[in-house]
Nucleic acid binder design. Structure first.
Lengths: 359, 359
DNA sequence: ATGAAAGCGCTAACAC
DNA sequence: GTGTTAGCGCTTTCAT
């Protein structure tokens, strides 16, 4: 009964189908089967066809462990993430997994949960499994010590980077993203721009704050007050916005270090009777859909394009596996996504913006 | 130089260290090395020690492909998710990965992206890699057709379930969760409870709505109006809240099908001058931290405990791999997380709740 | 054009 | 207590 699944066929032993079974059914030797299946050597068309249909009929799937054993390649890579919660690593992983899948690579998922012990455990596991390469991802863009030295396989750091400049890292151009945000605010006519962001000890916060300050300086302007460092939370956004309202009513734009902060700012501004974007334009960072779109009004935001970044990391890893390593720090541009929170104030349409919930 | 990493040692060939290298360095045969490393057979303590330190010195890691080849077991499982964006599958995966890691299992990550073709591709890949089992996860709790029939390895469905009742599925007890939400609202003295939720064709929406209605009926009450089916979005929450305000000012609680919806409802109520929880108590679903905590006030919500659910699924899979299958549909209880949005209205503290952003 | 056989790294059965 | 060897499933010479 050729149409049936292998495991349903009467007489099926439960044992996986091997190349031997195929050889027997096709009436040839295993060597011939191997050639037929891999399109190597020279075979009569008829023989090749006979083998292929036998394999088909048995539902034969080559045992990759055996292939790995004599090729030395497993067509497998490890992905180690230090990020438990996954907000940043998920798109990275998905992008990488997609790019690797196209190269017939399977991905081992390793969640190190910010624990160096777990990390080393996973590293050993992956080496034992003879993965062809490793991608290391994490929640922060700050450089971190290499996961290992003198490893026999290539490693690519994605989002995070390695402190060793010879290592291959792919990182978002956060400074460039901040530049785009500031440029956009200037372009829509804003001049008194404040900056609210995360903790000062957080790499992304300082990079983005510095970049924003520098860009304004290039335009002959200064930030409206020092950057407000706090937490990556809506609550901090609300709190900081109130500080701003208390101290300086002249601000006509706020560039925020994250969408969560921006959303808190939007809520606080609205509660205080300030209109966004008419009175104050708002730009976030991350382009986190649920925040940027849930915000009233929808938020202009800097997108780090993490999925693309993951894809790039995977491509660099594949190249390195094939002997074409690209050592060093590779930056990946950010993209500014413009939404209503920075709509040009030259054409205000107050009545339309104010009741988004109406049915 | 014993302290050095294997790959840095002078004379290192780049070739992975095998059991042969260890045998040679220890001056014994490969069989002896195998016994020493796996604690089998009987060896002199001195010999065992000599082997272990040789292995240590060379940084030996057994080639898992070889182990797999003659044990037939790969200590590997596949995790197929149909969920691209990952909101639900991430905690599931993390829980499962954690539980499997404890069993020395590595996890292949497969993102099928809602594409049946990709799903079957991954299934073939996993079978070819001879995984010991498969976990299938997805974004919706609705039953889906089995991923394959007569498969040679156990499959466990997590969050989603299989339409075949003989398959092993682990699903959240959404109805139970809805019961807890309603019970809690009744316990804090609410009697006119409305329900706003996602699309009517969405399994979770109807299950939760039905369960809420039933529970109220058991208490001799009725839902305040028919369930409002719409979208899983904040915008719909806002819109539905306005419908509610227009039609029926007497509602003293809203049970929402998701935290996103609840958050939209909270915003709309506040904008309309209604106080939460004083005038209207609010319960969400999902306990999605960023929504539940970002909401003003923080949201009481039903937590499906997806990480635990993933862990349970992994444990069931491990058991099935060891020959102790647990066919059928296993439900996993939900947990109600109580926050300010349902604080008992008998002790109102209006002044404190209204300015959470104050510094 | 096809078959036979060695070998990838490891484990286990058996010999000594 | 330790060494030798067959064999897991597959690929790849090398004969024929």
């Amino acid at each position: 009964m050729p149409g049936r699944k292998a495991a349903e066929r009467p007489g099926n032993t439960g044992r996986p189908v091997t190349i031997n079974d195929v050889a027997q059914l096709a009436g040839v030797s295993v060597g011939t089967v191997s050639k037929a299946l891999n399109g190597r050597g020279s075979l009569r068309a008829e023989t090749r066809h006979r083998v292929l249909s036998a394999a088909e009929q048995l539902g034969f799937q080559p045992n990759r462990a055996a292939v790995a054993l004599n090729s030395g390649r497993t067509y497998t890579v490890g992905m180690i993430t230090t990020d438990t919660i996954g907000r940043f690593s998920i798109p990275l992983m998905m992008g990488a997994e997609d790019a690797l899948g196209a190269g017939e690579m399977s991905v081992f998922l390793c969640d190190a949960r910010d624990d160096p012990i777990r990390e080393q455990y996973y590293l050993r596991t992956l080496l034992s499994r003879r993965v062809d390469g490793i991608i290391v991802t994490g929640r922060r863009t700050q450089a971190r010590p290499p996961i290992g030295t003198g490893l026999p396989i290539p490693v690519v750091y994605a989002f995070i980077s390695s402190t060793d400049p010879r290592d291959c890292s792919v990182v978002p151009d956060e400074a460039g993203g901040a530049h785009k945000a500031v440029d956009h605010l200037l372009a829509v006519g804003r001049r008194r721009i404040a900056h609210i962001t995360g903790p000062e000890h957080h790499h992304s916060a300082t990079v983005r704050a510095t970049a924003a300050t520098d860009r304004l300086a290039e335009a002959g302007l200064r930030l409206a007050g020092a950057p407000l460092f706090g937490e990556w939370s809506e609550a901090w956004g609300r709190q900081a916005a109130q500080l701003l309202l208390g101290a300086n009513a002249e601000v006509d734009a706020v560039f925020c270090g994250s969408d969560q902060i921006a959303r808190g700012v939007a809520d606080a501004l609205r509660a205080a009777g300030r209109r966004v974007p008419d009175d104050v334009a708002l730009v976030g960072f991350d382009n986190w859909d649920v925040m940027a779109l849930g915000c009233q009004p929808p938020l202009t935001s800097v997108d780090m394009e993490l999925e693309k970044l993951g894809r790039t990391a995977a491509d660099l890893l594949l190249a390195a596996i094939n002997g074409e390593a690209s050592p060093g720090r590779h930056t990946h541009p950010c993209r500014l996504v413009i939404r209503d929170s920075t709509a040009a104030s030259s054409t205000p349409a107050p009545a339309l913006d104010s009741a988004p919930g109406g049915s």
